[in-house]
Nucleic acid binder design. Structure first.
Length: 475
RNA sequence: CGGGAUGUAGCCUAGGGGCUAGGGCGCCUGCUUUGGGAGCAGGAGAUCGGAGGUUCGAAUCCUCUCAUCCCGACCA
C-alpha cells in the first residue's frame, strides 16, 4: 500500500496535513493562509450546518445575513474590541478605482455591524429578545495559519442576541454553550469540557466568555466553540436602548456565540488514524459504501446482488455503491478508508453463494459476515456502535491524559513529558496565569462550570484557590 | 516577525557547468485483470518559481526576488 499519509508517531502535524490533503477535504489556495474547502470537506460542513441549524431554530433563533464590509469607525467604537482585533484586520482602502473616504474593514466578526442595526430595530422590551444567527465568512490576518484550524478566511456561524435583562442574556449564553456541547458530544463524538475562560483568554469586548474545550490525539487542547456574555458593552458603544416594562430607558443586554470550520480540524484530530479520516456516522456524508468484487464472468450476477442490497439500504442511510470498473477492490478499500466512510460492505462470489455480505467497520477495522436479509438491521446496529465507540474511545483517551496535581514541580513535569490536561487550583490572579504560561507554555483552557476552588491552593503562588482550572498546551 | 526547509510535467523526485532534462505515480489508448492500492504494450504532458548576472554554453555557479510548508513568537 502506498504511504500517502505520514504516521502520527513520525510527525503529528504532517499527519494532519496529509489527512486533509489526501482525503480531499481542502487544498491550499494561491493566497497565503487561505484554503479551498473541497467537496469532501464542504460536505462535512453542510452536515454540521444542517444539525446546528435545527438546534438553533429549536431554541428560537432565526437566520439572517449581514454585510461583509464594515465601516472602519464601527470597529473602533468598543474599546476592548478594537484593541483585540486591530492587528488582524484586512482593510479595503480603494474601490471603484478611487481611494475611499472611510476605509472598510472586512469583518473579523460582526458584532459592530449587527449592533448598529439592532439600534434601529429595538425600541421596546416588546422587541426583545432578538435572536439572530448568521452563517458567514470572516477574515482575520493571522501570522501563522493551519488548514481548518486557523486560516485567514474561514466559515462560521455567529449568533447575536439581545435581551431585556442580564439574567436572560446570561441564560442564553449558557444555553447555547450547552447546545454546542451536545453537538460536539452526540454528533461529532468529541467529549468537551464546558467552562468559562479566564480574563486573559476571553473575547475582546465580552464580559464573560465560555468555551467547549476538546483534547486532540496529541494531547493538546482545542477550543471548539465559544459563547459570550457581552453585558451592555456593545449596547453602550452603539447606543442601543429600549423602553422597559416600567417605562424607563435601558441599555440592552447581549450575547454572541460561534463555531467555525475549525470543527472539521477537531473532528480529524479526535478520531482519525494512520490509514486516513475516521468519521462518526452522525456526520459522515456517506455512511455506507458497497464494494462489489467480481471477475469478468461473475460481474453481472455480483452487480445484481450488490444492487439489490443497495436498493434495500438507500432509503435508510446515505449509501454509495462503488460500481467504478477502473479500480480493483483493494484500491477501493484503501480509498474509502482514507475518506473515513464508517461502514464498508464487501460483496464477492463467496458471499453471494452463501447469501451473505461482509461488513467492515472503519473505527476498528473489524470485519463481520452477516446474512444478507439481516444486513440493513446489522448496519444500523453497527453505525450506532461506531458512533458510541468513537465517543467512548475519545473520552477514555482524555481521561487517561487528565491529571490532578497540587505541586508546581509535578505540573511542569507532566506538561513537559506526558502532556495532556491538568486540573489544578488557581487563585484567579493574572500574574500567576502569565507566569505559568511563560514557564510551561500551558494556558488555562477552561474554568469548568460548577467548580469553585474545592479547598485547593493555587498551583503557582500557593494562595487559596478561587477556582479549579484546566491547564494545557493548546492549538 | 524570527529559525529551518523546499520550489524541475497534475503529484513525488534524479541530475550540482556541456549534447535530445531521466525515472516513479497519476493521466490517455488497447488488451488482460479484479477477496487489501494489478500487469503488459503504446502515448500525451516541462519556457527546471521569477528577474538579473558570470560564461562560448546555466536546471546546475553568483546576486536579488517571489511563493509555500514546518517550528517558534503572536493570536476574538
Amino acid at each position: 500500500m502506498a504511504d500517502k499519509i505520514t504516521s502520527r508517531n513520525k510527525s503529528y502535524s504532517q499527519w494532519y496535513v496529509d489527512i486533509v490533503i489526501q482525503a480531499k477535504l481542502a487544498d491550499y489556495s494561491p493566497v497565503k493562509g487561505c484554503m479551498v474547502i473541497r467537496p469532501n470537506g464542504y460536505a462535512l460542513w453542510e452536515k454540521m450546518q444542517e444539525i446546528l441549524n435545527r438546534m438553533f431554530k429549536e431554541t428560537g433563533h432565526r437566520n439572517a445575513y449581514f454585510p461583509l464590509l464594515i465601516p472602519d469607525s464601527f470597529i473602533k467604537k468598543e474599546a476592548e474590541h478594537v484593541e483585540g482585533f486591530s492587528p488582524e484586520l484586512a482593510i479595503v482602502t480603494r474601490a471603484g478605482g478611487d481611494k475611499l473616504d472611510e476605509p472598510l474593514v472586512i469583518r473579523p466578526t460582526s458584532e459592530t455591524i449587527i449592533w448598529s442595526m439592532y439600534k434601529k430595530w429595538i425600541q421596546s422590551y416588546r422587541d426583545l429578545p432578538l435572536l439572530i444567527n448568521q452563517w458567514a465568512n470572516v477574515v482575520r490576518w493571522e501570522k501563522r495559519t493551519r488548514l481548518f484550524l486557523r486560516t485567514t478566511e474561514f466559515l462560521w456561524q455567529e449568533g447575536h442576541t439581545a435581551h431585556e435583562t442580564a439574567e436572560q442574556a446570561q441564560e442564553e449564553t449558557l444555553k447555547m454553550l450547552f447546545v454546542y456541547q451536545k453537538f460536539a458530544e452526540e454528533y461529532m463524538a468529541i467529549p468537551v469540557i464546558a467552562g468559562e475562560k479566564s480574563e486573559s483568554e476571553k473575547f475582546a469586548g465580552a464580559v464573560k466568555t465560555y468555551t467547549i474545550e476538546a483534547m486532540m490525539q496529541d494531547k493538546k487542547a482545542l477550543q471548539a466553540g465559544t459563547s459570550h456574555f457581552l453585558g451592555q458593552n456593545f449596547a453602550k458603544a452603539f447606543d442601543v436602548t429600549f423602553q422597559s416594562r416600567k417605562g424607563g430607558l435601558e441599555y440592552v443586554w447581549a450575547t454572541s456565540w460561534g463555531v467555525s470550520t475549525r470543527l472539521i480540524g477537531a473532528l480529524i484530530m479526535s478520531h482519525s488514524d494512520d490509514k486516513g479520516l475516521v468519521l462518526p456516522p452522525e456526520l459522515a456524508p456517506i455512511k455506507v459504501v458497497i464494494v462489489p468484487i467480481y471477475k469478468n464472468d461473475t460481474k453481472t450476477d455480483i452487480m445484481n446482488y450488490a444492487d439489490s442490497l443497495y436498493k434495500s439500504l438507500m432509503g435508510k442511510y446515505s449509501v454509495k455503491l462503488d460500481d467504478d470498473d477502473q479500480n480493483k477492490p483493494g484500491w477501493k478499500f484503501s480509498e474509502w478508508e482514507l475518506q473515513g466512510v464508517p461502514v464498508r460492505i464487501e460483496i464477492g462470489p463467496r458471499d453471494m453463494e452463501k447469501n451473505q455480505v461482509v461488513l467492515a467497520r472503519r473505527d476498528t477495522g473489524e470485519k463481520i459476515t452477516v446474512n444478507k436479509q439481516h444486513a440493513a438491521e446489522e448496519v444500523k446496529n453497527l453505525l450506532e456502535d461506531i458512533q458510541n465507540n468513537l465517543f467512548r474511545r475519545a473520552a477514555g483517551f482524555r481521561q487517561e491524559n487528565t491529571f490532578n496535581t497540587s505541586g508546581y514541580g509535578e505540573f511542569k513535569e507532566i506538561i513537559n513529558a506526558a502532556g495532556g490536561f491538568i486540573q489544578a487550583g488557581w487563585c484567579g490572579s493574572p500574574t500567576c496565569e502569565a507566569g505559568i504560561k511563560k514557564e510551561t507554555k500551558a494556558t488555562i483552557r477552561a474554568l469548568p462550570l460548577a467548580h469553585d476552588g474545592d479547598g485547593k491552593k493555587c498551583i503557582y503562588c500557593g494562595g487559596d484557590a478561587a477556582v479549579t482550572a484546566v491547564f494545557a498546551k493548546a492549538y
